[in-house]
């Protein structure tokens, strides 16, 4: 059983919600990424997303764009990230998923990419620019490799939700609101009806992401999904930290707050 499926099965049995956290690989260094992941798990993260830095991350807001630039400035390559993932896997038991853009996989070669994902302990993939209509060129290979190709739904997906969830693997990434990733002060989404719409089609685990940054938001939104995803708020702390130790301390602090809010 894939680690993602085991995680959600366990959480469901324990009646707990998943805390999913994100860091950009190589921001500020790959060694720091290993430490950050270990610290996030210690502080209560259930699943970790590793962002693969890209030159043109069209789904990202300014915070993660800046992290991509910091990482790319270190001339980090995908094989380095694969090695780092394996190092993380050695010290972290939480499921690991990559968030990356499709061109990275296409150039690397999908077979080689999936094989190395498996060897490095990567459990799933989030590809923001691979919608339902285009996933056919990767989905059968991912299924074969046992790497979960996640799907995203948004408040404007409407009647696409049914067909999307039928293809979805792992957990369903529910985009909280229109727009790019980043910290939001408030949401205009009707989360109740969004959740009901999804539940008409599937009982699979769901997690809400995009714009969720604080313990208060976690408290307000956790009832609408099986988990919450926090990215930019963490990446912002990494970017603002004085040094590596400070980044680890600050990120740990935030993840602990989020965990408490989720378990209340």
């Amino acid at each position: 059983m894939n680690r993602i499926d085991s995680l959600f099965a366990r959480l469901r049995a324990e009646k707990r919600k998943a805390l999913i956290t994100f860091v950009t690989a190589g921001d500020p260094t790959l060694a720091a990424t290993v430490d950050l992941c270990r610290e996030m798990e210690r502080a209560g993260a259930d699943l970790i997303e590793l962002g693969v830095p890209y030159s043109d991350p069209i789904a990202e807001g300014p915070v993660i764009q800046a992290a991509n630039l910091r990482a790319l400035a270190n001339r980090i390559h995908l094989p380095d990230i694969m090695r780092t993932a394996a190092e993380i896997r050695a010290v972290v038991s939480a499921p690991l998923v990559y968030l990356l853009y499709f061109n990275c996989i296409l150039q690397y070669g999908p077979e080689r990419f999936l094989k190395e994902c498996l060897e490095s302990g990567i459990d799933g993939l989030i590809i923001p620019d691979l919608p339902l209509e285009e996933r056919e060129e990767l989905a059968p290979l991912a299924d074969q490799a046992g790497v979960a190709l996640l799907s995203m739904v948004t408040p404007v997906s409407g009647e696409r939700i049914g067909p999307i969830v039928r293809q979805a693997r792992g957990f369903l990434y529910c985009v909280s609101s229109l727009g790019v990733t980043g910290v939001r002060g408030q949401f205009s989404t009707d989360f109740r009806s969004f959740q009901e719409e999804i539940r008409k089609h599937t009982g699979m685990p769901t997690a809400l992401g995009f714009g969720i940054s604080s313990a208060d938001q976690v408290r307000a939104l956790k009832e609408y999904a099986d988990g919450v995803i926090v990215g930019s708020a963490i990446v912002r702390r990494v970017g603002a930290a004085a040094d590596r130790a400070d980044a680890i301390r600050q990120v740990g602090e935030l993840v602990r707050e989020l965990r408490l809010a989720l378990d209340e």
């Binding site: 789904a59 691979l130 229109l178």
Partner: peptide, 22 residues
């Protein structure tokens, strides 16, 4: 073979949020 393709080229590689708009 697929919608909006010129041979193997073209397609709709965009975030889900834009798919209904397209």
């Amino acid at each position: 073979s697929r919608k909006g393709r010129f041979g193997e080229f073209g397609g709709q590689y965009v975030p889900e949020t834009l798919m209904n708009a397209l």
